[in-house]
Amino acid sequence: MRVLRGRAARHAPWLALAGVLGWAQASLAGEYESSPQVAEFVTEMTRDYGFASEQLVSLFAAAERKQNIIDAISRPAEKVKPWKDYRPIFITDSRISRGMEFWREHEEALKRAEAEYGVPPQVIVAIIGVETFYGGNTGGYRVVDALSTLAFDYPPRAPFFRKELREFLLLAREEQVDPLTLTGSYAGAMGLPQFMPSSFRAYAVDFDGDGRINIWSNPVDAIGSVASYFKRHGWQPGEPVVSAASIEGDAAEQGLTVGLDPVKNVAELRGLGWTSADPLDDLLPVTAFRLEGAEGAEYWLGLPNFFVITRYNRSVMYAMAVNQLAELMVEARGTQP
Rank of each mutant, 00 (worst) to 15 (best):
Glu164Gly: 02
Leu150Trp: 02
Pro179Ser: 04
Val241Trp: 09
Glu31Met: 05
Met320Gln: 08
Arg112Val: 09
Leu280Gln: 13
Glu131Trp: 05
Ala24Phe: 12
Arg5Tyr: 11
Ala12Met: 13
Tyr32Arg: 06
Asp48Tyr: 02
Pro193Phe: 00
Phe230Glu: 04
Glu33Arg: 11
Val119His: 03
Asp153Gln: 08
Leu21Thr: 11
Ser148Cys: 01
Ala9Trp: 14
Tyr86Ile: 03
Leu182Cys: 00
Leu169Thr: 07
Gln336Cys: 02
Gly19Tyr: 14
Glu44Pro: 01
Trp300Gln: 10
Gly191Asn: 11
Val130Lys: 09
Leu56Thr: 14
Phe51Ile: 08
Pro262Tyr: 00
Pro197Trp: 00
Glu116Ser: 12
Thr132Ala: 06
Ser243Asp: 11
Leu110Ser: 06
Glu54Pro: 07
Tyr186Phe: 13
Asp261Gln: 15
Arg65Leu: 10
Thr92Arg: 15
Leu256Tyr: 09
Gly136Leu: 04
Ala146Lys: 05
Val316Leu: 14
Arg75Gly: 04
Ser315Ala: 08
Asp221Ile: 08
Glu78Asp: 13
Val205Ser: 01
Gly30Ile: 12
Val308Asn: 06
Leu256Glu: 11
Pro179Val: 00
Ala115Gln: 12
Asp208Ile: 07
Arg232Tyr: 07
His106Lys: 09
Ala172Phe: 05
Ser94Phe: 15
Leu147Trp: 00
Leu284Ser: 07
Arg10Trp: 15
Val125Arg: 06
Gly99Asn: 04
Ala321Cys: 03
Phe161Glu: 05
Pro337Lys: 01
Pro285Glu: 12
Trp83Cys: 06
Ser97Cys: 09
Asn313Trp: 05
Leu15Pro: 09
Ile73Lys: 04
Tyr117Leu: 06
Phe90Asn: 07
Glu31Arg: 13
Ala62Asp: 08
Phe161Gly: 03
Ala244Met: 08
Arg311Phe: 03
Val3Ile: 12
Gly140Tyr: 03
Gln336Ala: 12
Ala12Phe: 10
Ile128Ser: 07
Glu331Asn: 15
Glu164Tyr: 00
Ser243Asn: 11
Arg157Ile: 02
Leu150Ala: 00
Phe307Leu: 13
Arg166Met: 12
Thr183Asn: 01
Met1Cys: 04
Trp103Ala: 05
Arg98Phe: 10
Lys84Asn: 12
Leu150Asn: 07
Gly249Asp: 06
Thr181Phe: 07
Thr181Ser: 14
Ala72Phe: 08
Arg10Ser: 13
Met196His: 06
Glu33His: 08
Met320Asp: 03
Ala227Met: 07
Met196Pro: 05
Ala204Phe: 10
Asn305Ile: 03
Leu17Met: 13
Val308Ile: 02
Gln236Gly: 08
Arg87Phe: 03
Pro156Ser: 07
Pro240Ala: 04
Phe102Ser: 03
Phe60Arg: 02
Ile89Asn: 01
Phe60Ala: 02
Pro120Asp: 04
Tyr203Trp: 10
Gln122Asp: 11
Gly271His: 01
Gln37Tyr: 04
Asn214Gly: 09
Ala39Phe: 12
Val266Ile: 12
Ala63Arg: 04
Val258Gly: 12
Trp274Leu: 08
Leu303Met: 04
Phe161Gln: 00
Glu327Trp: 08
Ser217Arg: 14
Ile69Ala: 01
Pro285Thr: 14
Tyr203Arg: 09
Val42Leu: 07
Thr335His: 09
Phe168Met: 01
Phe289Val: 14
Phe230Gly: 01
Glu40Pro: 04
Ala187Pro: 01
Val286Gln: 09
Gln67Phe: 13
Pro159Ile: 06
